[in-house]
Amino acid sequence: MRGLALTTILTIEDDERIRRLVTLALKEEGWDVDEAATGEQALELFADQGKTHDVVLIDIMLPGIDGFAVCRSIRKASDVPIIMVTARADTHDVVAGLEAGADDYLTKPFAGKELSARIRAMLRRARSPEASSLDRISVGELEISPDEGIVLKEGEELHLTKTEFKLLVELSSQPGKIFSREVLLERVWGYDYFGDGRLVDVHIRRLRTKVEQDSANPRYVVTCRGLGYKLVP
């Protein structure tokens, strides 16, 4: 058994040297690391450890079951933050990875500093209770409790990932106000101006499938063309 305070990261990477250097860099940060070389091994490890990992790092290109499938399996079982590792930023891989349930992505080659920064941002999102002035925000049939991390829709709890929840809370902090992608990227993901707007787009889309009756014609999370998104009170 692990100590409760220790942050554990599951890293899935078939290239042995990259796996070792990731482990090295993460251990430097004071985190514990579980390594897996294949998707099968990773899923086994994830289940064995009682799904207690704090962040999962998945390389998309894996022998056997690929990164997307691993991501979907883990997402089905847990809302643990997932970071996808892709070879290129401008391919369909990024969107597919986010669709599969990843919260963020990194492109190879990435620097150790970048990796730790992404993981730290994830951990902050997952751990910190929302310091909102309101205990409870009601928007139509939605009831959001930032402190408890709960969203109720018609009294029933919705299962949102940490990122989706944080996104919804940001939008609901000022209902009716338009949030640009840059602002959402900074507040939810901790990116600067040059972050990838597709992160916001795909997460908004996933959020809609959970909070909207008809996600093709959203009632709550509305697109403001050319400007961003807003929550309609």
Binding site: R17, K108, P109, A111
Partner: peptide
Amino acid sequence: SHELRSPLMTLRASVDLLER
């Protein structure tokens, strides 16, 4: 270029550690 990427990544990370 792809082949060069992986060793470069290892190099980069190792240098990062050393620099720290």
